[in-house]
Computed example of a mutant assay.
Amino acid sequence: MEVLDLDSDCFLVKLDNEQDYFRALTDGPWVIFDHYLVVQQWSPDFSTSDPLPKTMIVWVQFPALKVHFYHKEVLTALGNLIGRTIKLDYHTLTQQRAKFARLAVEVDLSKHLVPRIFLDGRWQKVEYENLPLVCFECGRIGHMKALCPSLRPKGSAGEIVLAGSLSPTMTRPAEVESNPGFGPWMLVTKKKLAELKGQPQKR
């Protein structure tokens, strides 16, 4: 591992081991002396003068997802509706667990979190693990509802529709809700996180 000290309390870390690389990206958020350490993939657009990181990789869960959606291509497409799919949980990929599907997704911090998607004729909840400071007014990371700088915009902001069918059994494509509601149910409970502790993660 090589660490390069940059300005603005930023560091560039180079890892030769792929397993360590994905662990650093997806096993967080990392906390050092009660402060969150934001870890993200390096990009040519990165600048230490930016006040906040533009993206963050988080674990998301699809609770009670129908079993016939447990396919790599389908889950990757669903994750891409939330952000950009980075990897699938080992137990999800091997279909060893069906209570919920789990995957790591890179989310855009300038946009609100996606609380649910319309999939196969019903609303599918999306839950997020270990997120710091989620505002249930605007759905963004970084502040609480009491300190929200503005109310959630009214009206439709448009819909994101996945072109084509995700599987032969689907009756319609998946959609992201255009005017969602936010709440504590978006966050994975400590009990569920405790159940995941110690499980191996693979690509």
Rank of each mutant, 00 (worst) to 15 (best):
S178C: 07
K191G: 03
P200E: 10
V105R: 02
V13T: 13
V114L: 04
G183Q: 00
V126C: 07
P149L: 06
I86F: 00
G79V: 03
T48V: 15
L131W: 01
S165F: 10
Y36W: 07
V188M: 06
L119Q: 06
L52W: 13
A98T: 11
V126W: 07
L131A: 02
G181D: 05
R84M: 04
P63R: 03
K99G: 08
D7L: 11
E129V: 04
V74A: 13
D20V: 01
P51Q: 06
L78Y: 02
Q40G: 03
V60M: 11
V3D: 03
I82P: 01
K111N: 13
W42I: 06
Q19S: 05
Q199W: 13
D89R: 03
E159W: 02
Q95W: 11
V134E: 01
V107S: 05
Y21M: 01
M56G: 10
K190E: 14
V188A: 07
K202N: 13
D9F: 08
R84D: 14
M1N: 08
M56C: 07
L109V: 06
V134Y: 00
L133A: 13
R23H: 14
R172L: 07
Q40C: 03
L193N: 12
Q124T: 09
F136D: 00
L131Q: 00
C138M: 09
A24F: 13
R172M: 14
M56L: 12
P149N: 04
F69G: 08
S167Q: 08
R84N: 12
E2F: 09
E106I: 01
G198Q: 08
P44Y: 07
D120Y: 12
G183Y: 00
A64D: 14
R140T: 14
N17Y: 05
Q19G: 02
P51R: 04
V60K: 04
K111Y: 07
Y36T: 15
K197N: 12
P184T: 06
F22I: 00
R172V: 01
V105C: 02
R84K: 15
R102S: 09
E129Y: 07
Y90D: 09
P200S: 07
Y90R: 10
K66L: 08
K54Q: 14
F62D: 12
L88F: 09
D120L: 01
Q124P: 05
T94S: 15
E73L: 04
G164H: 09
I82Q: 00
R84G: 03
K197V: 08
L151C: 05
G142K: 07
K111M: 11
L88E: 06
Y90M: 09
R172C: 10
C135V: 05
L103C: 08
L113A: 06
W123N: 15
P132V: 05
H91S: 14
A194T: 11
V126K: 05
Q41C: 06
C148K: 12
V188K: 01
H68R: 11
E18K: 13
E195D: 14
T55H: 14
E106R: 05
E18N: 02
T169V: 02
S178E: 15
E129D: 14
I32D: 10
L65M: 10
R102E: 06
E2S: 10
L113P: 01
W123V: 12
E175I: 12
E195N: 08
G164L: 10
E129R: 07
G198R: 03
E127F: 00
P132M: 04
F62S: 12
F46G: 03
P132A: 10
F62Y: 15
A163P: 02
P63H: 09
W123F: 09
A24M: 15
